[in-house]
């Protein structure tokens, strides 16, 4: 029962927040939901398959860009899923050359891709004469909250479930030893591609929701490396081998940032960096690795 506790607590909290009746609470809840959704998606690729993505902001930014560009052209209930789909396709297409790069080179490549896409978007925007975009008439934060909650739940469910599927098992084997995994019949190219694409769908939709929330899009912000960095830190601190990890990691840092961001944003980031390094060296399995130590089979 204790193993399911985090899920229950977060689910209950998620449904309770709107009843508090405060815009501030909704804002925090939105943030928390966002980070949970992003981090859960990240661990599908980077936790389970072992392909660490240092540039996950690219999916967030692409989704935001799509929603912003199609604002008032396509209704939101269509543009959000489409943002996810288009980002999925993007990931699948670039995965052809990208997933052939292994080890640490893949890691820095993901960073380079995020930056490259950012600058391409900046170029495209400037060719339209735009440097940033404002949206008007976006949905209320209350409505957006429910969408984000749904995304967070979906991402958590996916991250939890995948572990028990044949696909998830294949990913774990790929993480352990890709060549050996191939030698037992796991279709590594197909699975890696699928993991890569899957890990981008929900972040894209999250990006879209956040664009609607802030009414604002600016490439430097949407593709900010700090987004990628924060995802990684939450995953490592919470535990990247467990669907409960992102819940804990996101909660910890969302509340930390609520306390520090307004007054000392640089201080907050410095703390983030220090905690990340400390956890990598001392507690690489994160908080979840401590509270729920893996014992025996977990698939």
């Amino acid at each position: 029962m204790t193993r399911a506790l985090p899920f229950v607590v977060f689910l209950a909290a998620g449904f309770t927040v709107p009843w508090i009746g405060s815009t501030y609470a909704l804002g925090v809840g939105l943030q928390l939901g966002m980070w949970i959704a992003l981090t859960q998606s990240w661990i599908i690729l980077s936790g389970m398959a072992g392909y660490i993505s240092l540039g996950h902001a690219v999916f967030f930014g692409l989704g935001a860009y799509f929603v912003v560009m199609t604002w008032e052209v396509i209704p939101i209930w269509l543009s959000l899923p489409l943002a996810g789909l288009i980002t999925f396709l993007f990931a699948v297409i670039i995965s052809v050359p990208v997933l052939r790069v292994r080890g640490p080179y893949f890691v820095i490549l993901t960073f380079g891709i995020a930056e490259l896409v950012k600058y391409v978007v900046i170029l495209i925007e400037s060719s339209f004469g735009q440097y940033s975009r404002l949206l008007f008439g976006t949905p209320e934060i209350g409505d957006l909250y429910w969408v984000m909650l749904a995304l967070a739940i979906a991402a958590t469910a996916l991250s939890y479930w995948i572990r028990f599927t044949r696909f998830g098992h294949g990913l774990l084997a790929i993480r352990e030893d890709e060549e050996a995994a191939q030698s037992i019949g796991i279709p590594i190219v197909r699975y890696k591609t699928l993991a890569y694409g899957l890990s981008g769908i929900i972040p894209a939709m999250v990006g879209g929701v956040m664009a609607l929330r802030t009414n604002y899009f600016e490439p430097e912000q949407a593709f900010d490396p700090i987004v990628s960095f924060t995802i990684i830190t939450m995953a490592i601190v919470g535990g990247s081998d467990d669907a409960r990890g992102p819940l804990l990691g996101a909660a910890f840092f969302t509340f930390l940032s609520e306390m520090l961001w307004a007054s000392a944003p640089q201080g907050y980031l410095i703390i983030l960096g220090v905690i990340l390094i400390a956890f990598i060296l001392l507690m690489p399995n994160g908080i979840c690795g401590r509270i729920f130590p893996p014992a025996g089979s977990r698939i």
């Binding site: 660490i52 240092l54 990340l276 390094i277």
Partner: peptide
Amino acid sequence: LLIFFGAIVI
């Protein structure tokens, strides 16, 4: 790499 990324931000 992750450690270096942390160092960058710091």
